[in-house]
Nucleic acid binder design. Structure first.
Length: 311
DNA sequence: AACGCTACCAACCGCCGTCTG
DNA sequence: ACAGACGGCGGTTGGTAGCGT
């Protein structure tokens, strides 16, 4: 008797994940934790292969995933590690916190393999001339760096207000004491303040060139202090970690250095909340007409930070 | 404007190692 | 020792956006 397939192929959803599927999966894992991938789709009410659920969680939904372009420092590290370890992407990913093996593999295949092929000495030169913030590698086509991801990347963002009303299907009840606390929804007052702050962010943001290549470092984001600090920055993304509760927030910029809450993937607005006994993930998104939802404390910290930078 | 090509990357596929009964 | 379940890994595919002609 052969091994049974990991899932029935018939009647399964394939392709890009919808926001609702993401939400169901995320909520399920918040409650039940990771693992048990084979049974997860049935129990969560997802028409997905267990493997697909696992991959989606590990490569996209996990709260500790770092977003944004690979930094020059990371790039050098990837090249070094690839030379040392070969195509063991999971091991390489293990040395790059927040990066997934899939992301590194893709990055290697689309960027670095060509670069290394065309410049075989890129690696041997690395020790004498490490990549520095002042001399980042120049992309072949600069405009591509700012490109939004393809639209099928519906990601985890709940940009359809109706979706917020959809309760995830969780068949297996868990004991009350094991349940994660309900996420707090923003109040109306909170939303008002957020909208004001959002206006501020959209209208009065300082020169974003400052954020290039980690030139601003107000705090070491790894020390889990309460300060807000830029995460690894990139050409098209500004991210801030608020480590007390492990919040991550991202804004994106367009060609004119206008900042706005990002709406998908590379350009994104995301909040990750990792508590002590649970992993919560809350995302809100926005479009040009909807008001924005943010964590007020974090945005206030951001505003303070921006004010101080302007001074 | 239309078409073709390229870049990108999320998702899929199949193999393999480990665990468990 | 064995078979099956399960999860992890690396290679590949396919859909989309952007660019050039």
């Amino acid at each position: 008797m052969g091994r049974r397939p990991c899932c029935a192929k018939v009647g399964m959803n394939r392709g890009a994940w919808t926001t609702q599927e993401d939400r169901i999966l995320t909520e399920y894992i918040h409650v039940h934790g990771e693992g048990g991938w084979r049974n997860l789709p049935t129990q969560a009410g997802l028409k997905r292969c267990g493997k697909s659920c696992r991959l989606r969680w590990l490569n996209y939904l996990r709260p500790d995933i770092k977003r944004g372009n690979i930094t020059p420092e990371e790039e050098v590290l990837i090249i070094e590690l690839q030379e040392e370890l070969g195509n063991r992407w999971s091991q390489i990913a293990g040395r790059l916190p927040g990066r997934t093996d899939n992301e590194i593999k893709n990055y290697w295949n689309t960027h670095l393999s060509k670069k290394v092929r065309s410049h075989p000495d890129v690696n041997s030169n690395k020790k004498s001339t490490p990549a520095s913030p002042q001399s980042p590698p120049t992309p072949k086509n600069e405009s591509r760096v700012v490109r939004a991801k393809v639209s099928r990347s519906t990601k985890v963002f709940f940009d359809d207000p109706q979706l917020d009303k959809v309760e995830p299907t969780i068949i297996n009840e868990v004991p009350e004491e094991n349940k994660a606390p309900e996420p707090q929804l923003p109040s109306d007052d909170f939303m008002e303040e957020i909208c004001d702050l959002s206006d501020f962010l959209n209208s009065d943001f300082p020169d974003l060139s400052e954020f290039q290549y980690n030139t601003i470092q107000v705090d070491d984001s790894a020390n889990y202090s309460n300060e807000i600090s830029p995460s690894t920055s990139s050409n098209d993304q500004v991210g801030f970690d608020h480590r007390e509760n492990f919040h991550q927030q991202y804004w994106t910029t367009d060609y004119n250095n206008e900042i706005s809450p990002a709406t998908s993937s590379n350009n994104q607005v995301g909040f990750h909340h990792q508590g002590k006994n649970l992993q919560q993930q809350q995302y809100w998104t926005t479009d040009s007409t909807e008001s924005n939802c943010f964590q007020l404390d974090d945005l206030q910290s951001l505003a303070t930070f921006l004010d101080s930078e302007e001074d």
